[in-house]
Design a binder for these strands. Structure first.
Lengths: 149, 149
DNA sequence: TATAATGGTTCCAACGATGGGAAGGTCAAG
DNA sequence: CTTGACCTTCCCATCGTTGGAACCATTATA
C-alpha cells in the first residue's frame, strides 16, 4: 500500500514516516517499480506501535529500544519495564516542575487585581532584584545556587 | 560590565543574552571602544526579569509582552493578569496530558513482572493492532473521521 | 616586553519532532 | 488525453539552547 494509506491507518503522517525511515527508526520501505514506497500490514503494525509509544511520550530513541525489544523473542520484560519506569520518572519530574510554576503563578495572579490600575504583583515578582533568590511560594525549600534543570 | 559578568549576575548565559539581543527581546547593548558589549545594572535587572519569567515557563513572545508592560507606567494590571492566566491554562493542559501518559504507563508497568521472562504487558499494549484510539488496520479500513490530534 | 590564558566577537550548525512548500514524476478516473 | 490526487526529493522553519571554529582584546605572569 502507498504511504498515504499507511499514514492514515497508523495515524502517523507521511512526512513523519519518511522521517522515521531517514533516521533509521524503521527500515527503508520496499519500493514499487515507479519508486513509491510500499507498505505491508506488518509495516503498518509497526507504525501503530510507534504511534502508541509516541502518544505515551516516549522519545524516538526510547521507541528505538522498545521496538528492538518488541522484535526480540528472547527479551526480558525487566528491560522493557526499566525503560517505562525511567520514562515515568521523567514525566513525574517535568510535571512537578510545571506544577511549581503553576502554583507560583496562580498565587501571583490571585494577588493581582487585574483591572486598569498599573500596580501588579506579577510584574512585582518578576522584577525583584536578584530574581535568583526571589521566594517562590511553593513548598520546595529555598533555591540552591544552581538553578533546577 | 562585560557580558560574562552580566551573565553570571543574571543567571542567563552569554550565549542567550546575545540571542535575546539578536531576536530583539532586549535592545542592542552599548559597546566599548573595542567592540565588547557593555551592560549596566539596569540591563542586568532586565535580564533577571527575563530569567525569572523564563523560570516560570513563559515563552519568549510572552516575555516580550511582559517586558513591554513592565516598562509601561500606564499599563493595566489586567493585561498582565491575562497573560499569566493564559499561561496557567497552557501549563494545566500540558500537565493533564502528561499525567494521562503517566497513569497509563504506571498501570502497564505495574502489570509487568519486570523479570527475565519475555512476556510483557507494556509491549502488549503498544503492539495492540490499532492502539487505543486508532482504526483497525484491516485491509479495508473503514473511513474514519479525523482522529484526535 | 613577550607570552599565555581568559574572555570577548561573529557565524554556522545541531538538537527533537513536526509542518510547509516547491518542483517534478505517477496513477487512475473520466 | 486531461485532470486531479498522490507520490518523490529537497530545502526551510519552528523553539530555546548549546556547541564549536576562527579570530580579536584584555589581563596576568614569567
Amino acid at each position: 500500500m502507498n504511504i498515504g494509506i499507511a499514514a492514515k491507518a497508523s495515524g502517523i503522517s507521511a512526512k513523519m514516516i519518511r522521517y522515521y525511515e531517514q533516521i533509521g527508526l524503521i527500515p527503508a520501505a520496499d519500493r514499487t517499480a515507479s519508486g513509491y514506497r510500499d507498505y505491508s500490514d506488518t509495516d503498518v503494525h509497526t507504525l501503530c506501535f510507534i504511534r502508541r509509544a509516541r502518544d505515551l511520550g516516549f522519545s524516538v530513541s526510547e521507541i528505538e529500544e522498545l521496538l528492538s525489544l518488541w522484535r526480540d523473542r528472547d527479551r526480558q520484560s525487566g528491560d522493557v519495564k526499566r525503560i517505562a519506569l525511567q520514562h515515568i520518572e521523567e514525566l513525574r519530574s517535568r510535571i512537578a516542575e510545571m506544577e511549581g510554576m503553576m502554583t507560583t503563578l496562580a498565587t501571583l495572579a490571585d494577588a493581582c487585581a487585574g483591572d486598569q490600575r498599573p500596580d501588579c504583583p506579577i510584574l512585582g515578582d518578576l522584577a525583584q532584584p536578584g530574581g535568583r533568590n526571589s521566594p517562590a511560594p511553593t513548598k520546595t525549600p529555598p533555591p540552591r545556587s544552581s538553578p533546577s534543570v
